[in-house]
Design a protein around this nucleic acid. Structure first.
Length: 567
DNA sequence: CCTCAAGTAAACAGGA
DNA sequence: CTCCTGTTTACTTGAG
């Protein structure tokens, strides 16, 4: 109880200035853009128009891609459905990382996969920028709808398998509540100018929306009118078991393409659909691992959404600057799941005039941005990451970092290591195996986007760890003091604790599922981030650091957690 | 329930 | 005086 009061008085301590300027708000203008919208005239094609068009196309493509990604994670047997009257942003329900942190996801599924995925996505996004010319909103709508359906399907599947703990109906209800269909309907109208989503759907169906077909894996099913009105779901009666069989007969599956399974990290070859389905059921049944992988995929999508949001914001700023009337600003401003979840949940407040909060918090605060606006600014200002999973669950820090350094460098994800192990790693990584405090700080900020904010907190933790653990030895130097590692102490320090649990099986299905359905991400503790520039998930992929051979040093380090690894 | 490790917050001291 | 560094204590949380 006291804690709360304590945390409420958190003040940003002076230490913030330690060269950690990660804030580069590029959004100038956020304000009065709605003033300038006067209809959609497109008589002439000026450079400005082209720019506009390009941007929109890019954004649209990105959005589509995100949606595809999101739909891709809807576990097997979840496509073929096509429409639902109610818009339900999948990710809203599925992305609730407050229960399982991104780190955990990463642990579960090696981030190289994440990187690979992101890379793919980036490439595909670029491709799609070229191909996606028409059917902007419609494609968007279409896919959103599909996502919803997939989500529903997924839920149904879970129910069927008895894996949805307790009352699936409750899950549904919470889902539905969180979604607030009416809000969504409204949103749709705003966004698309289409009277209702069903209308939109009809239109969408009338068109060839296969713009996404450039992504061979996505092949959105066009068939099926398996309606699953969400409003029926709460009864828990709408199981439509036939869908599986139905799916098997249609030749496409988002997780199947080019004769191989597109499940993240799988790539198993399957000659035909039947074989693939079999494979899917065998290898990717709903278990801890698959569920965890889903969450990883969510993370991927989330990161892409962040990127998308940023681009949207940029577009807005550009257009504002050029005095353009954003012909269709809304869809782009609306970071579909992330932010919208907040706004919808929030409900009462506008909080969402523009879709994106303005400068600093915008993109990088996927989960909570709007909540902050609402609550006292200090309520959870720094989202203390209590109780992160300890490194005992992790792969050895050295290899993990070596493989995923680009990821951590850019993604605002807390590394799944203890402070102590990180500090040690930093020190041992240095040429002289010694670092000053400030150098350690710098290492943290350099290596982890996550540590580019809340500096007061983690720096304090670093100092605390340095002092606390005997394995860190302070050595007076000419220029001051440096910190070194007493390896013996360090090893001693480590409890024989078990662990290792294969990360892939770490979080239990229950956890994951409850996370899935806890669509009340209101209390997310992700902090108000400022990682604008850093959370550039897409670009980070260019990194290609994975598969770097480990330096000998790293090898040493890697031995560091042998027991932890092997259970 | 207890213990322990980890994370967080904060008070405090000493030095630049 | 402010800020940084370093130490220490207190507390919470999660896991064993």
């Amino acid at each position: 109880m006291m804690v709360e009061s304590a945390s409420e008085t958190i003040r940003t301590t002076p230490s913030n200035q330690n060269g950690v300027s990660s804030l580069s708000s590029q959004s100038d203008g956020g304000g009065g853009r709605e003033g300038g919208s006067n209809g959609d005239v497109n008589g002439e094609i000026s450079p400005v128009d082209l720019l506009h068009l390009q941007q929109q196309q890019a954004l649209q493509a990105a959005r589509q891609f995100l949606l595809q990604q999101a739909s891709g994670l809807n576990s097997p047997g979840s496509n073929e459905v096509k429409q639902s009257p109610v818009q339900v942003p999948v990710s809203m329900a599925m992305m609730s990382p407050q229960m399982i942190t991104p780190q955990q996801m990463q642990q579960i599924l090696s981030p190289p996969q994440l990187q690979a995925l992101l890379q793919q996505q980036q490439a595909l996004m670029l491709q799609q920028v070229k191909h996606t010319l028409c059917s902007k909103q419609l494609a968007f709508q279409q896919q959103l709808i599909q996502m919803q359906q997939l989500q529903q399907q997924h839920i149904l599947n879970l129910q069927r398998q008895g894996l949805v703990p307790m009352q699936p109906t409750a899950a549904m209800q919470s889902l539905q509540q969180a979604m607030c269909p009416s809000d969504l309907q409204q949103l749709w109208k705003e966004v698309s100018g289409v009277p209702s989503s069903e209308e939109a759907l009809k239109q969408a169906e009338g068109l060839d929306l296969s713009t996404n077909s450039s992504n061979s894996t996505s092949a959105f099913p066009k068939a099926a009118n398996a309606h699953i009105p969400l409003h029926n779901l709460p009864n828990g009666q709408n199981h439509t078991p036939k869908r599986d069989s139905h799916e098997e007969h249609t030749g496409s599956h988002p997780l199947y393409g080019h004769g191989e399974c597109k499940w993240p990290g799988c790539e198993a070859l399957c000659e035909d659909m039947g074989q693939f389905i079999k494979h899917l059921n065998n290898e990717h049944a709903l278990d801890d691992r698959s569920t965890a992988q889903c969450r990883v995929q969510m993370q991927v999508v989330q990161q892409l959404e962040i990127q998308l949001a940023k681009e949207s914001e940029r577009l807005q700023a550009m257009m504002t600057h050029l005095h353009m009337r954003p012909s269709e600003p809304k869809p782009f401003n609306q970071p579909l799941n992330l932010a919208s979840s907040g706004s919808l949940l929030k409900r009462d407040s506008d909080a969402y005039p523009e879709g994106l909060p303005h400068p600093p918090t915008s993109a990088a605060t996927p989960i909570t941005p709007l909540l902050h606006a609402h609550s006292h600014s200090h309520t959870h200002p720094v989202g203390p990451i209590r109780r992160r999973n300890s490194d005992k669950y992790c792969t050895p820090i050295a290899s993990e970092l070596a493989q995923n350094c680009e990821f951590y460098k850019n993604a605002d994800v807390r590394p799944p290591f203890t402070y102590a192990s990180l500090i040690r790693h930093a020190i041992l990584e240095s040429p002289d195996r010694q670092l000053t405090l400030n150098e350690i700080y710098n290492w943290f900020t350099r290596k982890f986007a996550y540590f580019r904010r809340n500096t007061a907190t983690w720096k304090n933790a670093v100092r605390h760890n340095l002092s606390l653990h005997k394995c860190f030895v302070r050595v007076e130097n000419v220029k001051g003091a440096v910190w070194t590692v007493d390896e013996v102490e360090y090893q001693k320090r480590r409890p024989p604790k078990m662990t290792g649990h294969n990360l892939r099986t770490y979080p239990s299905s229950h956890h994951l599922l409850s996370a899935f359905f806890s669509s009340h991400p209101v209390h997310v503790k992700e902090e108000p981030t400022e990682v604008e520039e850093d959370s550039r998930p897409v670009s980070l992929l260019a990194g290609v650091t994975h598969s770097l051979p480990l330096p000998s040093d790293e090898r040493d380090l890697e031995e560091d957690l042998p027991t932890e690894e092997l259970e």
